[in-house]
Amino acid sequence: MGYLLHMNMWQVADISFRSQIINFRSKLFLSLLVLTLGCFWLPLMAQAQNTPAPGGPYTVAVLDFYTNRSGFRNADSTEVGQAIPAILTTELANSDRFSVIEREQLELVLKEQELGASGGVTAESAARMKQLLGVDYLITGKVTEFVVEQGKSSSFSMFGVGSSSKAPDVAKVSIEVKVLDSESARIVATASCRKNIEIGKGSSSTNVGLIKTSSNNSSSSDSAMGNVYYAIAKDLADQLNTVKFKSLPAKVKYTGFVAYVEGDKVYINLGSKHGITQKMVFQVRRDEQKGSVKIKKTVAQVQVINVDEEASECQVLEVEEGNKIKNGDLVESKL
């Protein structure tokens, strides 16, 4: 009896489903019915994208800073571009506002997925990092100036008594930091560091006859330069911990699947009932293993040309070379 009742329920659903999309071809009717039975777990309605709470905590990744080498003097641009983000990562991790991706994990994913670790971030690369790392925001930086100026020296001598001193070296720094939304690469917050920072404490010496005393706080020591990097990272972290993140318009993503493919036409299981309108563009995607992670690969783009209550007809705009659209492929609206 339960079996008959179960069958009757599906028969009623089948008749209702067919009547709603009667304008589509008979092949579409059968494909939608079969795939609906097999893929009922796929989301059929518009889903609002999850966004972090207004005040955090935010999951972020700090990328290496881009360095303009023409703005460097007496400093290692590669070291600066890596050391400051590393310290900034630690400083942000110690705050309640941020949850930070570890540098080792970030570098592994960037290398494996062949994504740039610094410089420009595109909407596509930002979205891939969001997918792979689960980040809300990406923190990027650009060092436009890092000039180490030698401290001035002075000396004095009279009647066998003399002294000399050297002022500490000074690092002239100019750095711009941007916080990018990981879905669109749009800027939601900024911070900057423009200052002169003393490196060490300089040196001095005194001569009295044959007796000589001296003190030397070398500006070139690793610890002295490390203190400069820390001062910069601490300044940037303080700003990022208090700056208000710009609110972006709420985004809605529509997710469904391909029910049937015929030539350059694709039929999907989303219609006006789900908020679909003509000219909407969808990405056709499927799972692909790449290295140690599974990603959703975009294989094509389609555009809605006809809309029914439960389904839509789409025109194929482009297909990635070596791929083709298949029944059951995931479709997601472009944000």
Rank of each mutant, 00 (worst) to 15 (best):
residue 7 M to V: 14
residue 7 M to K: 04
residue 8 N to Q: 09
residue 8 N to F: 12
residue 20 Q to T: 12
residue 27 K to I: 13
residue 35 L to Y: 14
residue 41 W to P: 00
residue 42 L to W: 10
residue 44 L to F: 15
residue 47 Q to C: 14
residue 53 A to Y: 03
residue 56 G to R: 06
residue 56 G to F: 03
residue 63 L to G: 00
residue 63 L to V: 05
residue 69 R to H: 12
residue 69 R to V: 11
residue 71 G to M: 12
residue 73 R to H: 04
residue 73 R to A: 12
residue 77 S to L: 05
residue 79 E to H: 07
residue 79 E to A: 06
residue 81 G to S: 08
residue 83 A to T: 05
residue 85 P to Y: 10
residue 86 A to D: 09
residue 93 A to E: 05
residue 93 A to H: 02
residue 95 S to K: 08
residue 98 F to T: 02
residue 99 S to M: 10
residue 100 V to Q: 04
residue 107 E to T: 08
residue 107 E to N: 14
residue 108 L to D: 05
residue 109 V to C: 03
residue 110 L to M: 03
residue 110 L to E: 00
residue 111 K to F: 11
residue 111 K to V: 02
residue 120 G to R: 07
residue 120 G to A: 15
residue 121 V to Q: 09
residue 124 E to Q: 12
residue 125 S to Q: 07
residue 131 Q to Y: 09
residue 134 G to Y: 05
residue 142 K to S: 11
residue 142 K to H: 06
residue 149 E to C: 01
residue 152 K to P: 00
residue 155 S to L: 09
residue 156 F to D: 09
residue 159 F to N: 02
residue 160 G to M: 06
residue 164 S to W: 07
residue 168 P to G: 01
residue 170 V to A: 01
residue 174 S to M: 11
residue 176 E to T: 15
residue 181 D to Y: 07
residue 183 E to G: 05
residue 186 R to K: 14
residue 189 A to H: 04
residue 191 A to S: 15
residue 194 R to M: 11
residue 202 G to F: 13
residue 204 S to R: 09
residue 204 S to H: 02
residue 213 T to C: 06
residue 216 N to P: 03
residue 218 S to Y: 12
residue 219 S to H: 03
residue 219 S to T: 05
residue 220 S to Y: 07
residue 220 S to T: 15
residue 221 S to K: 08
residue 227 N to Y: 11
residue 234 K to H: 09
residue 235 D to W: 06
residue 238 D to N: 10
residue 239 Q to K: 15
residue 241 N to L: 08
residue 244 K to M: 14
residue 245 F to Y: 11
residue 245 F to I: 09
residue 247 S to V: 10
residue 248 L to S: 01
residue 248 L to G: 03
residue 251 K to P: 01
residue 258 V to W: 06
residue 262 E to S: 09
residue 262 E to I: 07
residue 264 D to C: 00
residue 280 M to F: 07
residue 280 M to L: 08
residue 281 V to E: 03
residue 282 F to Q: 00
residue 285 R to I: 11
residue 286 R to E: 11
residue 288 E to Q: 13
residue 289 Q to D: 10
residue 289 Q to H: 02
residue 291 G to V: 11
residue 294 K to A: 15
residue 296 K to P: 01
residue 297 K to Q: 08
residue 298 T to R: 04
residue 300 A to Y: 07
residue 303 Q to S: 13
residue 307 V to F: 11
residue 309 E to K: 13
residue 310 E to F: 14
residue 310 E to C: 02
residue 312 S to F: 11
residue 312 S to P: 02
residue 313 E to D: 03
residue 315 Q to L: 13
residue 315 Q to T: 04
residue 319 V to C: 07
residue 319 V to R: 03
residue 321 E to M: 15
residue 323 N to Y: 12
residue 324 K to Q: 06
residue 324 K to D: 14
residue 325 I to D: 03
residue 326 K to P: 01
residue 329 D to H: 06
residue 332 E to N: 05
residue 332 E to A: 08
residue 334 K to W: 15
